[in-house]
């Protein structure tokens, strides 16, 4: 019998009623008398399952429904249609046994008391999550060391930098050892080294506890480093489910063949190469040719035959380009 999935969604949907008005005084006055309501379908009939221990990333443009899906799974939102099951629980019922086994980390929101040292909030969580004292002491010491928080946890949270605060948010979310960890934009607004430290920490947590990770992020590197399975959600629907490599091939099916050259192409060779695929850069010392997978052997043979050719590489289109293409279909800046 197959193991029960950690997370299962069945035709899950969420509608919001939001009121809408035009800008300007006249519209404001009209809205006083008659509000115009618009139904927004943030998530539509979403169905998928996630096995225990999987690391899954939600990708999609702004307003696609990623964060809404995450909030539905964490139990913050009640579904409008369909159902969700996490660890065998209905999330929206928010039973204490359920809440003790999951955690939600939101890059833009805080759990910590703003004017008190983070240690005070850690201590509160120890008691309300019923964490045995030896576990608490060990985990806290370990996390403080890994994240280099020794000098930080005793200071009022409001005095910390964004990165330090986010590290403390991770600690407070992980102290009780959640089996399912939901992360919403965990590295938003951080510099690269801080992003790396946080990614590393999350990976370690996953390795050590075998926890299930579900992540949304705008940083491709987060997703590439943390997730082995990608769900692309757009307009509230599932558009893709698979590995990063598959996603790249689906969106940019062409493989990229690159080579270094001593001198520029002669016109004859150029025409020949253009017949094989899309010729990108073609000025010495570099040449890039995007070709269909079946034509890779031909392209490789032809390129290596060029005078002075060396350092041949074949790879998928860069992830950033894939994402740009994926997100470009929708306008930027829509909130969700």
């Amino acid at each position: 019998m197959p193991e029960r999935p950690a997370i299962a969604l069945e035709r899950l949907g969420k509608r919001f009623r939001v009121h809408e008005r035009e800008p300007g005084l006249r519209a404001t006055l009209r809205a006083l008398v008659r509000r115009e309501w618009v139904e927004v379908e943030a998530v539509r009939e979403l169905s998928f399952t996630i096995a225990a221990g999987e690391r899954v990333g939600f990708l999609g443009p702004n307003g696609a429904g990623k964060t809404t899906t995450l909030k539905l799974l964490a139990g913050l939102l009640h579904p409008s249609t369909g159902k969700a099951e996490v660890l065998g629980f209905e999330p929206a019922a928010r039973r204490p046994e359920f809440l003790r086994r999951i955690a939600l980390v939101m890059g833009q929101k805080r759990q910590l008391s703003w004017d008190l040292p983070a240690l005070d909030s850690f201590e509160l969580n120890r008691v309300i999550f019923e964490i045995p004292k030896p576990d608490y002491t060990r985990r806290l010491a370990q996390m403080i060391e890994m994240l280099e928080l020794g000098a930080v946890v005793g200071k009022p949270v409001r005095t910390l930098s964004l990165g330090e605060r986010m590290k403390c948010e991770l600690v407070v979310a992980l102290l009780h050892g959640p089996e399912v960890l939901f992360l919403d934009e965990p590295t938003i607004g951080m510099d690269v080294s801080m992003q790396l430290a946080i990614r590393e920490f999350i990976r370690d947590y996953h390795r050590e506890r075998g926890a299930t990770l579900v992540l949304t992020s705008h940083y491709m590197d987060d997703v590439a480093a943390l997730c082995d399975r990608i769900l692309v959600i757009d307009e509230g629907q599932l558009r893709f489910d698979g590995s990063i490599a598959e996603l790249v091939r689906r969106i940019r099916p062409l493989r990229r063949v690159a080579i270094r050259l001593d001198r520029s192409l002669d016109p004859g060779a150029r025409i020949e190469l253009e017949a094989l695929g899309d010729l990108g850069v073609s000025e010495a010392p570099r040449l890039v040719l995007d070709v269909a997978p079946a034509r890779v052997p031909d392209a490789v043979a032809r390129l290596l035959a060029l005078p002075g050719a060396r350092d041949l590489e074949v790879h998928d289109a860069p992830l950033e380009e894939v994402m740009r293409e994926l997100f470009a279909r929708r306008g930027p800046g829509e909130g969700e």
């Binding site: 139990g75 809440l99 939101m106 309300i128």
Partner: peptide, 12 residues
């Protein structure tokens, strides 16, 4: 502001 979410995630 959505601050309530943090309270809703605790088993209290």
């Amino acid at each position: 502001t959505g601050e309530l979410s943090a309270l809703l995630m605790r088993p209290v």
